[in-house]
Nucleic acid binder design. Structure first.
Lengths: 134, 134, 134, 134
DNA sequence: GTGGTCTAGACCACC
DNA sequence: GTGGTCTAGACCACG
């Protein structure tokens, strides 16, 4: 099934203070929103200029993010008509595969917990609480 | 209570592939090991040169990590005799305070989970499993 | 000798994925078909609208290709009756001249072969094979 | 086997007149030189600034080429020490695989030949001649 | 010294 | 209107 919505520029939430580059934040956010199903294949991305003014960043920064997303097959260019979310082999859409994508962050948590000598139970409880409140 | 062990160079585990700077990895790891109690006040740090060769990184990188750790009061310089883990006010040693140090990593997990539309329960289970196996 | 066929819209084969602009692909293809004799002076071109819908491209793109072909004397406009393939001085119709038109593509092949350190013989054989199978 | 030469800036030959973007020319050239064996894994790339001044282009243009090559696994970053040609799974190093890389250009030749109604034999001969003279 | 990021502004090709 | 490319120049992080 193919979606054809026009996505608004505010699909991106940029933390200008973060040390993570703006274009990287955009890439990661869109990837997760595609994998999470909030954004679907066929959806029309907001134009580079639109996003740039909405976020208050340079158009080239947005363009860089779009280009890299295109290079990795997440977006497709429609010449002279902007970009759309690309059709993807659905292998990653499975819930199990998505769960695997969170593993690296969880392993980071595990390493830090161990070095802080924290009780596993306490860490798990804190995560549960954060997940519920979010 | 004062410890006087000579710490080995392999207290540091560096992921050269990671995007996190090497000196930052070293800082965070030592901090957590001090807070976790694996490394104690009075322990003698391995020399810059020793660590550099063991890890295969630039001595200046190790030196930078040591200097920053000294600047934050985690290490103390003993003239001509290398560095030792510093005495600290025990405020951070409480388990509750240590638990707070893991919160940022957990919040990152929460954000990613939400964007991947993962079941909180599944994420929590996966973390439990990783914590047990580690 | 003057031909008066109505050419079908599928004389154009467009690779939308290619980096070469659509209008450029159309121009090159028609030029080669005229030079190769598949398309003859007097043949009636399909209308802009016809081609656009058949190929799924923007009518303006087709129109641009037609205009440029007209500007170079490959097509002629008959008021109110669409475009026809123009009469040309036959200088290019000679086989030797046509052969020269393939030279740039061959030189590209030669450069790539050299950088890939391929055996000239192997490249020539592969081309022979492709030409036979096509 | 690992090479450790310092590559000169003139491994790149840029046609500023070409419609192909500079950074793309650089990417394609380096890829072919790696596949052809002229440039080997472990070779140190000339610095961005060095290449930029040698070619008379903007450092960001060179940087873009390097970044994309890194993203595709052709180059590896050594933090603070420049870039090196990356180790690759040797699957592409086989002569047969390299030969396949020339196929798209040959198919383009075949299409053009057909539309120009050229004799396959004449095309093959012309290619042979160009390959010998190059 | 190295590469990375971002900005500002210009120009181009395509539709 | 769309995205792509390039320049010039600044600043930063890393080693």
């Amino acid at each position: 099934m193919m979606s054809n919505r026009d996505l608004p520029p505010d699909i991106f939430l940029i933390a200008t203070g973060s040390s993570e580059p703006i274009y990287r934040q955009m890439i990661e956010q869109l990837r997760r929103q595609i994998l999470g199903g909030q954004v679907k294949a066929g959806d029309a991305m907001p134009s580079v200029r639109e996003v740039a003014t909405a976020l208050g960043v340079n158009p080239m920064t947005v363009s860089k993010a779009y280009s890299l997303l295109e290079g990795d097959g997440w977006l497709a260019r429609r010449r002279g008509m902007g970009m759309v979310v690309a059709e993807r082999e659905s292998q990653f859409e499975q819930a199990e595969s998505r769960l695997e994508l969170i593993r690296p962050s969880l392993e980071k948590v595990a390493l830090e917990s161990q070095q802080l000598k924290l009780q596993p139970k306490a860490v798990v409880q804190l995560l549960s609480q954060i997940l519920k409140s979010g």
